[in-house]
Design a protein around this nucleic acid. Structure first.
Lengths: 233, 233
DNA sequence: AAAATAGTGTCTATAAGACATTATGTC
DNA sequence: GACATAATGTCTTATAGACACTATTTT
């Protein structure tokens, strides 16, 4: 990163911390909660490693904008597609061994059916890795992913955050599968459907999806706004 | 702040954002949720205003350490006394009209019985202002306080965060009063006590507190660790 | 008709909310 | 004994969890 070189050339160090963002982008597919990793190559500490997409925040952009920009530049995800919320700011003094950099981490979500996930799955420059089987990661990125997974698990039971992991329309089986993968446990189908109905989380669109030698499933979308906090599982 | 002056003198601007902390310190007394304000004097935008205690993060300290340091230097609150948790990072490009500064906001709590609150209430350099009757504040500090109050209200019903607003020992009436002020509504005494008991939030210490022409109240403390998430009101 | 997934209802247990009176201390 | 706060229990309603069978479509 240019900032690091700059301070090394300049014998006078900055007096204050500078700021980066890193984004934990999740998607649920192939039966796992997966996170997007990118190549990190900053010798001597992290040569040829995996890490999160991220970068320094410029003086003319907000942290949110920086997260979306680096997701595009490093993660190869088109801007604006992903749900994105601020997660936590990581500020351990030695989290970047080269310079003092504080990082605002973002939690982002994409439905597996989105063209962004479909494209990036075929892109050799990035890796969609199960959150439970991560390789060694650069910086404090393993800690960030752990924090993000906890946030996602925590919020999925009382908000409609699962919206970010599903396409515009879906079946109740799709929805339940996302919940089961994120929570890491089976959920009773009847109780789940009853609660989704009572909480007015989703609404039926009237259509059916046919996809195999079996009864077709009704198609739903999320209700416009979440009416109130819900408890779904 | 020295950084602001420095960039004005230097025609070459920094390429990346620098980082500050601001701390929203709450306490409950005189029937209100109150926030600690300090004098801000940075003409031309904020001459003789009120704002939150805060300052730039040095290259050798974490955000948490910076929050505690500025709470001491600007807020006149001795270090380590207050409960302190990271709240949100505010990064609007023009939040500080002089320079690009991103701020990590912290939510902090003190019991009104603490010597820090008792001292600072008599200190003319700071003001304990009801969170519902704030004066015009510098920067985006009004937004920060609103966010902090929402976080506190949200967490008080399912965590033991009220611990930060109460002394080591207290009566159930004290505890309920803190809940009522933070939530802004009356709570039924019998239901409140039943739930505090069932959630194992507090434990009786065996003593009584005598303070007036009436029956003395049993004295409690918080249980060592919160056994699980609780729903108290 | 076999295979595969969709869709549905009841019972029980736990938690939440509404509500009023008696108890114990000080002055 | 007057006053002031502490302490306590029941009933009703809502929510959560456990549990198994029938329906509909394709091949």
């Amino acid at each position: 990163m240019s900032f690091g070189r700059k301070t090394k050339k300049n014998p006078k160090h900055l007096r204050f911390a500078v700021l980066a963002t890193d984004t934990i982008l999740f998607s649920v597919f192939d039966g796992a909660l997966r996170v997007l990793l990118v190549r990190v190559n900053t010798p001597p500490h992290f040569a040829d490693s995996w890490g999160l997409p991220g970068g320094l925040i410029g003086t003319k952009e907000t942290a949110d904008e920086s997260a979306r920009r680096t997701l595009e530049e490093k993660g190869r995800i088109a801007r604006g597609g992903a749900y994105c919320e601020q997660l936590y700011t990581f500020s351990a003094v030695n989290r970047d061994p080269r310079n003092r950099v504080v990082s605002v981490a973002y939690l982002a979500l994409l439905p597996k059916e989105s063209s962004e996930v479909e494209k990036s799955r075929r892109d050799p420059r990035v890796l969609w890795c199960p959150a439970s089987k991560l390789p060694r990661l650069a910086y404090d990125h393993a800690e960030m992913i752990k924090t993000a997974a906890l946030r996602l698990r925590g919020k999925i039971t009382y908000t409609d955050i699962a919206r970010g992991l599903l396409p515009k329309t879906f079946t109740l089986a799709d929805l339940q599968h996302v919940y089961e993968v994120v929570l890491g446990r089976k959920i009773d189908k009847r109780n789940f459907r009853r609660k989704a109905r009572e909480a007015a989380l989703v609404k039926a669109l009237g259509g059916k999806r046919r996809d195999g030698a079996h009864r077709p499933a009704a198609v739903f979308s999320f209700a416009r706004i979440m009416p109130h906090d819900i408890t779904l599982v």
